[in-house]
Design a protein around this nucleic acid. Structure first.
Length: 316
DNA sequence: AAAGCGTGCAACCGCAAAGTA
DNA sequence: ATACTTTGCGGTTGCACGCTT
């Protein structure tokens, strides 16, 4: 029949669970565990369908559930992960022990609502431990860009700074394993370029401020070269990431072109995961970055792609 | 006091993947 | 392979509760 096989009994109860029902389910699961949800209702003496029992257990009754408000760390993590993978709530939840996909989804939806209702014209938080803007972008310039974007696509819904951590990488293509979470990045810098000391990396959903390029690279053709990633690997930069992949845990592996200088290019693989403590901070925006970026004083260069960072997640 | 409204959250629905006979 | 069942997921709904009018 057209109806769910699990719910076609005559006397299935629906709606909120009573304390008695909860108690029955807990008793049964504690005593027998669960292997087949479809037989749980009958054996536990519940007039529910198995699906409802499963949901109740997973989202509410199971003992390792964490209750109460999300901590600031959890919030940051959710926002970061959402920037990476989009509405894959179960995946996001897998990074937050004791939290459920439903809870995160609810949180996200009301969070978005809140932000839409109260659009802010100025960046939320200026990170004190990251030196950007200076002679690079000013907040006004960023606002200009963002306003352009807002007219093109969805309004900016949120920005959150994540303190000391992670981010980045670039290349063209898609990030493996991300499904719809296509983290396409636009890397751009000031049109003048020559005196920019701040690079601006814009990913789908993630905005990063990178350290300034090394002085020796601030002249010459720099359309596709990237600033040094960290001091410790400064000797290897600038580089262009050609391939970037991310596993389901958000770990990133990348392969890139290493530019010894501007006339000589050699390819080599840089593997290994990015050290969370070596990564610059980033700002997260929501879902507005797919558009080409153009605006006064800002010139898009390569429409390259970004990958990211992972270890941030692990470090929490 | 009562009606209206907004919000947060639990639960439902349909679909698709995974499992099984 | 195939038909059927079960599980898991994400979008959506609707209800209870608190606040405002």
């Amino acid at each position: 029949m057209g109806h769910h096989s699990c719910c076609n009994q005559q006397k299935v109860k629906r709606g909120l669970w009573s304390p008695e029902e909860d108690e029955n389910l807990i008793q049964y699961i504690n005593a027998h565990g669960y292997g087949c949800w479809s037989e749980v209702p009958e054996k536990a003496g519940l007039q529910r369908c198995g699906k409802s029992c499963r949901l109740r257990w997973i989202n509410y009754l199971r003992p390792d559930i964490k209750r109460g408000r999300f901590t600031p760390e959890e919030e940051k993590l959710i926002i970061s992960l959402h920037g990476l993978v989009g509405n894959r709530w179960a995946h996001i939840a897998s990074h937050l022990p004791g939290r459920t996909d439903n809870e995160i989804k609810n949180y996200w939806n009301s969070w978005i609502k809140k932000k839409i209702r109260k659009p802010s014209a100025t960046p939320a938080m200026v990170p004190s431990n990251v030196k950007f803007v200076q002679s690079g972008y000013t907040w006004n310039q960023l606002d200009t860009v963002n306003q352009d974007l807002a007219t093109i696509k969805a309004p900016i819904e949120e920005r959150v700074f994540s303190s000391s951590c992670p981010l980045f990488m670039f290349d063209t293509g898609t990030v493996d394993g991300l499904g719809s979470g296509n983290a396409r990045a636009d890397i751009f810098h000031e049109a003048t370029g020559l005196n920019s000391d701040s690079w601006h990396l814009n990913l789908h959903g993630v905005e990063a401020f990178l350290p300034p390029p090394a002085a020796s690279f601030t002249s010459g053709t720099q359309s596709n070269c990237l600033p040094p990633l960290t001091e410790s690997i400064e000797s290897m930069v600038p580089m262009e990431v050609q391939e970037c992949s991310m596993n389901v845990d958000g770990e990133i592996n990348f392969e890139c072109l290493q530019r010894q200088n501007f006339s000589e290019i050699q390819q080599q693989e840089l593997s290994g995961w990015i050290d969370p403590h070596q990564c610059p901070g980033f700002l997260i925006w929501d879902d507005h970055v797919e558009a080409q970026i153009s605006g006064e004083g800002i010139k898009p260069t390569s429409s390259s792609m970004g990958a990211m960072i992972s270890s941030y997640l692990q470090s929490l």
